[in-house]
């Protein structure tokens, strides 16, 4: 399924769009993370579809499921993907790396697009980590902080203020 098809998301399922964009971001660089972003998007879309079924949803869900199964097949030999704990650790490492970069830039007072995007992406990846079960208290706090930072810095930029 072409990537573009993947992003023709029915209106009622549009909440999964950020995770599919993040998956596309990682398709080449980190297929394991891309797989779990799509997996979380699928879980979320299935839950949304339960509330409000529509033929459009079904076409989209089947297409995403096909893509997930193909990804799993393509990554058959990947040791990380075949081990749940290794997968969880891998996604957490990726999320934490992106968060630490953003946090360091923030603490150094360097406010720029890449830093904002990194807070945003790390927040999404901490969401994706819920596919492995409930987040630890620490990760829940980090996830909340990353999302709050995106809102706070975006607000400052809109008001023409310097975030502190």
């Amino acid at each position: 399924m072409a990537n573009s098809g993947e992003l023709e998301i029915p209106p009622k399922l549009k909440a999964v769009r950020p995770y599919l964009l993040l998956a596309r971001d990682h398709d080449k660089r980190d297929p394991v993370v891309a797989f779990f972003c799509r997996h979380y998007a699928m879980e979320t879309a299935l839950a949304l579809d339960k509330q409000d079924k529509s033929p459009d949803n079904k076409i989209f869900l089947s297409g995403l499921m096909d893509r997930l199964e193909k990804s799993k097949e393509d990554l058959r030999s990947d040791e990380i993907l075949s081990n749940e704990l290794a997968s969880q650790a891998h996604v957490e490492t990726c999320a934490s790396k992106i968060f630490v970069y953003a946090d360091n830039e923030d603490r150094a007072g360097r406010f720029h697009k890449a830093m904002l995007k990194s807070f945003y992406k790390s927040g999404l990846l901490f969401d994706v980590m819920q596919t492995f079960g409930e987040l630890s208290e620490d990760l829940q706090k980090t996830r909340k902080y990353a999302k709050w930072k995106v809102t706070y810095i975006t607000g400052c930029q809109k008001r023409g203020e310097t975030p502190h």
């Binding site: 997996h39 699928m42 879980e43 299935l46 079924k53 079904k58 869900l61 499921m65 199964e69 749940e84």
Partner: peptide, 27 residues
């Protein structure tokens, strides 16, 4: 009855997708 049939078909499809997703993780 048609609506009912439609609804049960839709939920069967949902279940099928959920099962496929679960299998993906267990493979």
């Amino acid at each position: 009855t048609t609506a009912l049939a439609g609804a049960s078909a839709a939920s069967m499809e949902q279940d099928e997708l959920s099962q496929r997703l679960q299998q993906l993780r267990n493979q």
